[in-house]
């Protein structure tokens, strides 16, 4: 009992000592005064910023993931002769030399759901000289054989899972590469957009395909459309690559006073490259130019590393 009493007395003594040590509450410096001080400081900062802005000749680069992108060895400022000749003589060289007109076949899986059928119909309306055929039970390899005989230049196959389209396979014929894209965020046309669709050949914009792999993919997507657009129709199709996701948009443009105006037509979707294969489709014995299947953690080492 004696010990506990002593402890209580000690604590009270401590409290007294502590009270004297605590700083006195400053009544004059209330909240609004502090706020005023802050505003003053901000004004000074702004003035300094303006002065710095006047002195600066080049604007600052914003700090985004794109600007901080990891350097890729295949992005070359001056394209060497070797790559130039490679572009001229590869599978798409004859398209860019305007030697053939693209002719495209669009199919889907065996029993397509309504969403993918609708999607295929709008695709066939956008892509000129394209044909929509139900696949039934034919294999892709036999489709390729008969398409080469009938002089098609590309095949698009829409893959579906859980009642919605989720993949797009593009095969360039007769000996071109095969690419498989993951398809997401698909939005098909509404009633207004369907009405405004015309059959003019669209212009194509390919954005941000910088690396060597990106160049191949961009050329592949570009070669689906005819090289002579109908400028009268004022239709434009865009493949915009941002952080390896390829955004597809379809617009009609118009020149108002001083500035252009856009009106969206057609479906919109996002593509992401899964693999690129040399030669026509061969899932069993084919050789890949580039594939991320099974090595995602090995290749995606950083958030700031992109392949296209």
């Amino acid at each position: 009992m004696g010990d506990s009493l002593k402890a209580i007395i000690k604590n009270e003594e401590k409290k007294k000592v502590g009270d004297t040590l605590l700083p006195k509450f400053n009544i004059e410096k209330t909240k609004h005064i502090i706020r005023k001080e802050n505003i003053k400081r901000l004004k000074i900062k702004k003035k300094e910023k303006k002065i710095r802005k006047k002195e600066r000749t080049e604007p600052l680069v914003p700090k985004t993931i794109e600007t901080q992108r990891e350097p890729d060895t295949t992005i070359v400022a001056n394209i060497p002769e070797e790559t130039e000749r490679d572009y001229e003589t590869d599978e798409f060289g004859s398209y860019f030399a305007k030697e053939y007109e693209p002719k495209i076949l669009i199919t889907f899986s065996e029993n397509p759901v309504k969403a993918s059928r609708k999607f295929a119909i709008y695709l066939s309306k956008i892509i000129p000289n394209s044909m929509l055929i139900g696949r039934k039970k034919t294999s892709i390899k036999s489709i390729i054989k008969s398409c080469i005989r009938k002089k098609f230049t590309d095949i698009l196959v829409i893959n579906e899972d859980r009642f919605e389209p989720n993949g797009l396979l593009i095969i360039h014929l007769p000996e071109g590469p095969t690419a498989f894209f993951r398809l997401s965020n698909m939005k098909i046309c509404n009633k207004r957009q369907v009405k405004e669709l015309t059959s003019h050949r669209p212009e194509v914009i390919l954005n941000n395909f910088t690396t060597r792999l990106g160049a191949t993919v961009g050329r592949m997507l570009g070669s689906l459309f005819h090289y002579h657009p109908d400028f009268k129709g004022r239709r434009v199709v865009t493949f915009h690559n941002q952080r390896d996701y390829i955004f597809f948009r379809h617009h009609r443009y118009k020149f108002l006073k001083g500035k252009p105006a856009l009106r969206e037509l057609g479906p919109r979707f996002t593509l992401r490259l899964e693999w690129l294969q040399k030669g026509t489709f061969d899932s069993k014995c084919g050789e890949y130019d580039w594939t991320i299947f099974g090595r995602r953690h090995e290749l995606e080492t950083s958030r700031r590393k992109f392949f296209l």
């Binding site: 002769e81 070797e82 000749r85 001229e88 003589t89 590869d90």
Partner: peptide, 13 residues
């Protein structure tokens, strides 16, 4: 180092 430098010879054929 490239040993072929003739532009005509550089071709995918």
């Amino acid at each position: 180092k490239n040993l072929v430098t003739n532009r005509e010879d550089i071709s995918n054929k």
